[in-house]
Design a binder for these strands. Structure first.
Lengths: 161, 161
DNA sequence: GCATCCGCTGGGCAATCTGTTCAGCGGTAC
DNA sequence: GTACCGCTGAACAGATTGCCCAGCGGATGC
């Protein structure tokens, strides 16, 4: 659960050059290949590294519009709404939150006009009382984890074991 | 920009078993290795596949609390605020949006108590007028793209070329 | 109609990496 | 003092990669 400096460097290296391979990593980090391999295994079984799936860009797929919808759910309909939203491909993420809205929903669409279609499909469901939508314009900081990894590595054990 | 059925299957396969390799993919898909390789190259240069970086779980790193902050920015201070937020590791994502709030900010923290520290650091900056925060409780649909890829593949050219 | 272009096939090549195992060597904890 | 744990450095066979080639078929353009 806590990662040390070496773990951090492994993750950063992997993020910068995903095709790098264990051997080359061990060379650059100045440790034995077995060490890198063991660290990686540990990071994966710890769940720190979930996987290496391809990072797909919805915009390049033809969905350049991103929006967030805040949904208010009718009491007791939560499970149904989740199941419904899970079937909509344009729903990239669904979160339940504190506050007035009950759920936060990340959407993509082919265009602003198409967004209307997506929203209609999302909210066209019984359990949803109200929805309010904001469109994303820019993304000054795209989803990232590396700075957090670096911080966690600094705060972890100094550097050695 | 438009992907066909084979592209879709490649991406899905890669998402399910990232370590699979081009050769094994070509076997499972029933096409020549060169074809898979060419498709992958194209998908990467198209930007559809951004990369294969490790997917790190903030929770496993010790940051189990996720929150969204809506920020109102003082006129003309946008750039400064962005630069400021980019330096905060706990800021995983920053978006500018339409609507009353000006920016939407995805945060993580070590605990609910720690979230206060993070928020203080985030909003402790001149250009930010007001901030409202919602804490994420559950994640019924974790960030995903595969359903979208499948839909895009269906809508693309039938199956062949 | 005919030539050209493009994508896929199926083969082969050397070079490289992987997964795995081993013994040895500290440093730490008990 | 002893046992445990992590790292090192090396070895091995097996598999994969990157790269090349010629041939084939359909679609495009003239």
């Amino acid at each position: 659960m806590a990662i040390d400096h070496l773990d951090g460097r492994i993750i950063v290296l992997l993020a910068e050059e995903p095709r790098i391979g264990v051997l080359e990593m061990s060379r650059r980090l100045g440790v034995a290949r077995g060490t890198v391999q063991a660290r990686l295994d540990r990071l994966r079984s710890n769940g720190v590294i979930r996987g290496f799936g391809p990072q797909v860009d919805p915009a390049a797929l033809g969905y350049p519009v991103t929006a967030f919808a805040t949904l208010q759910i009718r009491q007791g309909q939560g499970a149904d709404v989740r199941a419904h939203l899970a079937t909509v491909p344009e729903v990239l993420e669904l979160l339940t939150t504190t506050g007035s809205g009950d759920m936060l929903c990340r959407l993509v669409a082919r265009s602003n006009a198409d967004l209307q279609r997506v929203i209609d499909r999302v909210v066209g469901f019984d359990g949803i009382v109200r929805a309010s939508t904001t469109i994303v314009m820019e993304t000054p900081v795209p989803l990232r984890v590396i700075p957090l990894v670096e911080q966690a590595a600094r705060e972890g054990r100094p550097a050695g074991a």
